[in-house]
């Protein structure tokens, strides 16, 4: 009877120690994630409380809590992508630094390049017409001497059409200054 009790108690003690050891080991396996790991994710998120300030430098209590949540989720072994997704689900797409490419948000990525390409095309077409119009009347003299590429003495000499225009403009300018 007595021996049995001792056995039982010591057995229980053993189990407890092993259990304690095991839990300790488990917690030792997942050390608290460092500030840098937390900030790496936080710097890509924006908290609705302080708009336009990234989470890693936002001083409000709400943002502090968010960072702690990131730390906790990292400790649980969640991946950065999963953590970001959690924040999107929980607080909406506004937490991301760029709108996700869904629905109307397509526009944010499409409009600037389309506008730029449209502008470039217009400019190119305009160039072509200008060149065609420019070449015809002046074709004779155009090839003779290209305008000096040194702006510091373009006025002197050569006497081609372009420089004549140039002289005319400068004379005009001088007249205006007086």
């Amino acid at each position: 009877m007595k021996a049995k009790t001792i056995l039982l108690v010591s057995g229980a003690f053993l189990v407890l120690t092993v259990a304690l050891f095991l839990t300790r080991k488990v917690s030792a396996q997942a050390p608290t994630p460092s500030d840098d790991q937390v900030n790496a994710i936080a710097s890509q998120l924006f908290c609705p409380v302080c708009e336009n300030t990234p989470l890693d430098v936002c001083p409000t209590t709400a943002c502090h809590q968010w960072r702690e949540l990131i730390r906790q989720m990292l400790a649980e072994g969640k991946s950065p992508a999963a953590i970001k997704q959690y924040f999107v689900d929980y607080y909406g797409a506004r937490v991301l630094s760029e709108p996700p490419v869904t629905g109307i948000n397509w526009l944010v990525y499409i409009v600037p390049p389309v506008a730029f390409i449209a502008g470039a095309t217009l400019l190119f077409l305009a160039f072509r017409t200008w060149r065609r119009m420019g070449k015809e009347p002046a074709a004779g003299s155009a090839s003779s001497s290209p305008a000096s590429n040194d702006g510091s003495s373009p006025v002197t000499g050569s006497g081609n059409v372009l420089d004549d225009q140039y002289v005319a403009r400068i004379e005009e300018e001088l007249k205006k200054r007086k």
């Binding site: 409380v49 709400a62 809590q65 607080y91 909406g92 797409a93």
Partner: peptide
């Protein structure tokens, strides 16, 4: 705009018993 663990301890502190939930996606 809150985190669940903090929210829970707040509700426990004040013995809140009425329905409560997060403002998902604000």
């Amino acid at each position: 705009v809150d985190t669940e663990p903090e929210a829970r301890s707040y509700m426990t502190d004040f013995n809140i018993s009425y329905p409560n939930g997060p403002d998902m996606g604000t």
